[in-house]
Design a binder for these strands. Sequence first.
DNA 1: CGATGATTTGAGAGCGCTCTCAAGCTCGTT
DNA 2: AACGAGCTTGAGAGCGCTCTCAAATCATCG
Lengths: 341, 341
Amino acid sequence: MNDVRPTLEAVAARAGVSRATVSRVVNGGLNVRAAVQERVREAIAELGYVPNQAARTLVTRRTGAVAVVIAEPESRVFSDPFFAQQLRGISRALSAADTQLVLLYVEDREDYGRIGRFLGGGHVDGALMFSLHSDDPLPGIAAAADLPVVYGGRPGWEGEDSLGGDPLFVDTDNRAGARLAVRHLLDRGRHRIAHIAGPLDQTSAVDRLRGYRDELPADAPHDLVAEGDFTPAGGERAMTELLTRAPHLDAVFAASDLMATGALRTLQLHDRRVPDDVAVVGYDDLEPATWTHPPLTTVHQDVEEMGRMMATLLLTRIGAGTDDPPAPVITPPLLVIRESA
Amino acid sequence: MNDVRPTLEAVAARAGVSRATVSRVVNGGLNVRAAVQERVREAIAELGYVPNQAARTLVTRRTGAVAVVIAEPESRVFSDPFFAQQLRGISRALSAADTQLVLLYVEDREDYGRIGRFLGGGHVDGALMFSLHSDDPLPGIAAAADLPVVYGGRPGWEGEDSLGGDPLFVDTDNRAGARLAVRHLLDRGRHRIAHIAGPLDQTSAVDRLRGYRDELPADAPHDLVAEGDFTPAGGERAMTELLTRAPHLDAVFAASDLMATGALRTLQLHDRRVPDDVAVVGYDDLEPATWTHPPLTTVHQDVEEMGRMMATLLLTRIGAGTDDPPAPVITPPLLVIRESA
DNA sequence: CGATGATTTGAGAGCGCTCTCAAGCTCGTT
DNA sequence: AACGAGCTTGAGAGCGCTCTCAAATCATCG
């Protein structure tokens, strides 16, 4: 192991060419004679040359890395399959473009400082942000750092404003998805349909609640809503509350599969049969939906693909420029019928 | 938003001092008069100056980031609470030292190339590596890149060799832990004790198997071992196999809690009562151990603390130098008795 | 065969920062 | 008052790379 890494200079000397020529070869070899390229590549191999990333970043102003910021504590990030799935799509797209991914999550409020410093410090070329809450400082931080961002899920603000134009995001049509779910329950003859909402400071939760209300007939009870937090435990709590407030409910639409699993557990604890006594519909169509007893009827969204799209959007925004101006993407939801409803 | 970021030069001009002085203030302000420091800090604030990381890295040869490499596919990384917990400890220690964490996992064999390029590319000052398998190329890659590494779990090789001296690692005493588990089962009067091992190309799995064999009395059956893969599904498969081979077993020691949960499910499916018919002991004492019915008796290891130790070890190895030569750490296991055995 | 244009190559100027070294100060001491 | 011992400060070199620009080389053709 040579303790000191060879530089461009060393390779150039070895190959008998100039630094500039080696640089050209390293970066694709445009306009370099084949014979020379060959010689340079040999020198690179012999010396075990690896470009110094810092030097390169210093002059190109590109780091080749993007941040993925999730506004949730680490425990949620690593336990919610939604993030895992999304992250999978993102990694795929990113590593195809030889771009590194730096994962950041928000453990507590003071982390915003650290994250702000990181995003502003020029460590990354852009950011993907998830799970923003309505008063989230992250968009402001990114704007202040002049950093391109793509949001996962429609952010709370839209259009021209202080944060610099239209936000770029990838989302599913949550409202339509919720309507699909409720429609299905109505079609199955259910009337007392409750809703376990997500945290109402997130647009996805709000949109799903709105869709639920849209579809409910005028004569149906409209107040059977409890707010959860997208976790199984939150689903349990919400279900317990609903059961107390409306013991005779005959269906539940949960705003996420994870909350639905919690609801399922609670219903079983209270001796309600699913779907006979109470029908349950989830949202997301992630793995847990297939594990439960009975398997969950749920609203599908292609989370991995959405992750991929986010990454692609960000890459084009960062990359060449405006030859294909990226625009927000909204994917259609799809009802998947299993056994819980 | 100023499109162009202010440089040290700009701050220096504004504060009426030299670049060097501003640099000193930014880096702690040693040997700079209080009045001057004040003036410089004002200039920094007014201009919104943020140091350019690349430039700094170029001269200091420190990136302020470390990689965490997990030799498992992303789906495992994000579903196994062991990694989540470990990662939590690591993040804590790292962000306390203002060091960034870059997470890398190995999706398939060809990822090794990408990871090698990344580790060799000078993007990070060191690496934390987990879940290595016996023939893993990662240690070689790190050695080739001359990168300080701390391993999670004793690596398969030890002592002086081609990979450059003693590997630094943090582990728990797996063998002793396994003995604790088996001892407990024996004390409860169990005799036909099976073992669901982890993948035997990992030292932790081998050591636990060894501990299990150590403690088994000479007249007990020694062949009730099935190999799992540390996942719930693997636990199910192994349990099914064991039940076929030895329908009368009265206890199972699983090498991880996750496999134990799978075993539990399978046992219930086969109408075995736990712990009455079959006692079950897990390993790790992570969250799932408390969720199961019945809650798992298991061997505790402080995974988060171990993560923190790994990070600390790496930081000292990277940092100052040899004033406190870091050494491998082996933590003691602890039996936690709940209801499954 | 010289002119024209395209292609290939090298020299050299930075990118923004740290760090060494020497010069300029401030003091306490004699 | 003079002098050496710290403190503070600034000048300037240099980290390894990219990129512009001009020089050199090659190809093409009237």
